[in-house]
Measured scan of single mutants.
Amino acid sequence: MSIQHFRVALIPFFAAFCLPVFAHPETLVKVKDAEDQLGARVGYIELDLNSGKILESFRPEERFPMMSTFKVLLCGAVLSRVDAGQEQLGRRIHYSQNDLVEYSPVTEKHLTDGMTVRELCSAAITMSDNTAANLLLTTIGGPKELTAFLHNMGDHVTRLDRWEPELNEAIPNDERDTTMPAAMATTLRKLLTGELLTLASRQQLIDWMEADKVAGPLLRSALPAGWFIADKSGAGERGSRGIIAALGPDGKPSRIVVIYTTGSQATMDERNRQIAEIGASLIKHW
């Protein structure tokens, strides 16, 4: 067993022997301040990774656009098919120029040779490549099948209805392509620590998230040296922004954090800054 596999296998073990965790309302004060600064709703939840206990939450059962955070769930569904012998990570998928959609920095470079399922998941999570996500959605049967996968996990809230990039439209009061912070946090925890996926697939999923290259201005910008984070960000229309993450000190994750916002007129930089400040408060009061 590799060191990384050992780390993920012992996530519940280490967490069980940690000192009790206590909620700190100071972080919620910052979440509410972010709402004021952005002029928009902000949803927040913080779960203990081992027990699933909610440590703090704000608007945990209000719907927010998922945006690209759905790509972690998508690759979880792909990995479940791999575990069941219905898919192979090494299978190569070929596609054409007509398949390319807006923001496809990886797939646009491989029109000639195609990409493997493993490479597509890596591109979808680490670079948020939209064509990679659409190609992977095709392998599982489309958005409705991802929703069905989530329902089978016990998540009857999260739903995907459309493809990239239309799913980022974020129309107010439109339930399409949305989740709730509580539902997303619980589902992410199941994917990373539950028995739904094999140990190898859980490790692969967290490795992809740990290698995320496009979430630097968010929670990662607030992390002290030595902290662990595996995350996936999302951005959408109407001032929408979000991030889902597993993080913790001492090089291992111990909490799940989900943050979503929508309806702001603020710039992307300002949305990023507010999420980073929430992260800084979380870490300060850990």
Rank of each mutant, 00 (worst) to 15 (best):
L38D: 06
I93Q: 05
T126L: 08
A246G: 06
G114L: 04
F22S: 15
K53E: 12
R273D: 10
E62Y: 08
I259P: 00
G85S: 10
S264E: 04
P165E: 06
E166N: 13
T112I: 15
G52L: 05
E108T: 09
R41D: 07
T69I: 04
T186Q: 13
M127T: 12
A185C: 07
F22E: 15
L218H: 03
K232E: 00
T112S: 13
V8C: 13
R91A: 07
D269F: 11
L47H: 03
A132C: 03
L205S: 01
T179Q: 00
S201L: 06
S128A: 00
G76L: 04
L199E: 15
G279D: 03
T179F: 00
E102Q: 15
D212S: 07
S122L: 15
S68L: 00
D113I: 08
T158D: 01
S96Y: 11
P217A: 14
M66L: 12
S240L: 02
V72R: 00
I140K: 03
W208Y: 06
L79H: 01
R91K: 10
E35T: 03
V29C: 13
T107E: 01
A200V: 10
R159W: 06
L73M: 11
T131L: 06
H94Y: 15
P20N: 14
R255E: 03
E62C: 07
L55D: 04
A34D: 02
R271A: 10
A77H: 10
A225R: 13
V117F: 04
D174H: 04
G39M: 10
C75E: 01
Q88I: 11
L28Q: 08
T126A: 10
L205R: 00
P181M: 02
R91G: 05
K32Y: 10
T178P: 00
I259S: 01
G226C: 09
M153T: 11
G263T: 05
V258I: 13
R91D: 06
L55V: 10
A215H: 04
I256A: 05
S122E: 15
A222Q: 14
D250I: 10
C18V: 07
L197V: 05
D250A: 14
T107G: 05
A148C: 14
P143A: 07
M67I: 07
K109E: 14
D269S: 13
E169W: 14
I45L: 13
Q88T: 13
E145T: 11
G279Y: 03
S201V: 03
R176K: 15
L47P: 00
N50K: 12
V106I: 14
T187D: 11
M180I: 12
D269Y: 12
T187E: 03
L111M: 13
A230N: 01
I229H: 02
G194E: 14
H94V: 13
A280D: 14
D48C: 07
S2M: 12
A235F: 02
Q37A: 14
E169V: 12
H151P: 04
K284W: 10
F17A: 10
R59P: 00
L150Q: 05
L282P: 00
A230C: 14
P25G: 08
Q203C: 02
E166C: 11
L223Y: 03
K30C: 15
T139A: 15
M209C: 06
W163Y: 12
E56V: 08
I283D: 01
Q97R: 15
I283H: 05
I256S: 01
G226M: 07
N272R: 03
I54C: 09
E61T: 13
A222P: 09
A200I: 10
D174Q: 06
I206C: 14
T193A: 15
S221G: 10
D36T: 15
R202D: 03
C18F: 06
M67W: 01
I256R: 00
E169S: 15
A280W: 11
A246F: 11
S104L: 01
H285C: 11
S233T: 13
E46F: 08
A40S: 10
H156A: 14
E270C: 12
A182V: 15
L136D: 00
R176Y: 07
Q204E: 14
E166G: 11
F14I: 13
T179H: 00
L196I: 15
V258F: 02
H151I: 10
F14P: 02
S254H: 14
S128Y: 00
T178R: 02
L47E: 06
K144T: 14
D231M: 04
F14C: 09
D177M: 01
G251V: 07
Q204F: 07
A16M: 15
G194V: 07
V106C: 09
I93M: 03
T193F: 10
E195W: 06
G76Q: 01
R63L: 08
A246R: 02
V258N: 02
W208K: 01
A182H: 12
L150D: 01
E108C: 07
T139K: 08
S128H: 00
A185T: 03
A182L: 15
S2Q: 13
R255F: 02
C121F: 01
E46N: 10
Y44R: 00
T198Q: 11
M115T: 04
A222I: 14
P65D: 01
G242A: 10
G226A: 09
A235N: 05
A266E: 12
D36S: 13
G234F: 01
L47N: 03
T116I: 06
V214P: 05
G226D: 11
K32E: 09
L79V: 06
R91V: 05
D250R: 14
R159N: 07
R189Y: 15
E164S: 00
T158V: 04
P253H: 10
T187K: 01
E166A: 13
T178K: 02
E62I: 06
P172D: 13
N98E: 15
P181L: 03
C121A: 08
A185L: 02
V21I: 08
Q274K: 12
P12E: 06
H24V: 14
R162L: 05
L89Y: 07
D33G: 13
